[in-house]
């Protein structure tokens, strides 16, 4: 990873394959996708922020452990925020909010942020987080539309539409994620900065 992450250019979910587990599990509606995406993005930004500050002082082996502790701490923060202000969303995301602690997106992004300087670390974290949240929301919107015929909870398809239940199940989520990755690579080209994956 060399700082060229972007919302469109090198999407963490759709190109790097980071944070796939919640993407398959909880993006059954657009709102769930958005909530999960924003919560993860927030924890990523804070982790990158702290790692940008102190990461340079740590040796390579300690970075991962420190990132893990930081991401666990900020996952707890995310859970408290969700529980306090968005209890319904917290209930539907369930165990995947505390699991932000071991999100591959944060572990990867946080360790990489170390020693890159304060500004670059925050910019990277912000761009990756937004890219992830956008991808999660889109995936959730597609699954909600196919699986329930609604968009952000409002019915948009005619009542005669028989929902494709598979889209709301994890298996359908994995298939749609694969198709989304394929489309993304077709549109934005593969490995623009000469590298495949992280």
């Amino acid at each position: 990873m060399d700082g060229k992450h972007g919302i469109l250019g090198n999407n963490p979910l759709l190109r790097l394959g980071l944070g796939i587990c919640p993407a398959v599990a909880v993006t059954t509606t657009a709102l769930n996708g958005l909530g999960m995406g924003v919560a993860t993005a927030g924890a990523l930004l804070l982790t990158s922020f702290v790692m940008g500050l102190i990461g340079g002082a740590l040796n390579e082996k300690a970075r991962f452990a420190v990132t893990l502790i930081l991401s666990a701490a900020f996952a707890s923060v995310a859970q408290m925020v969700l529980r306090g202000w968005f209890p319904a969303l917290n209930d539907s995301l369930g165990v995947f909010v505390p699991l932000i602690a071991v999100s591959s997106l944060i572990l990867c992004g946080g360790s990489e942020a170390a020693g890159r300087g304060f500004g670059a670390a925050i910019a990277d974290g912000l761009v990756m987080g937004i890219g992830y949240a956008v991808a999660m929301t889109l995936l959730g919107a597609v699954r909600e539309l196919l699986g329930r015929g609604t968009a952000f909870g409002a019915a948009v398809l005619p009542a005669a539409y028989e929902p494709l239940l598979l889209a709301a199940l994890p298996a359908g989520g994995l298939m749609l994620l694969g198709i989304a990755m394929g489309l993304y690579n077709a549109v934005f080209g593969r490995g623009r900065n000469g590298k495949e994956g992280a």
């Binding site: 028989e162 239940l165 598979l166 298996a171």
Partner: peptide, 10 residues
Amino acid sequence: ALLLASWPKF
């Protein structure tokens, strides 16, 4: 399998 998972009532 897809049809059975998605539209079981039909």
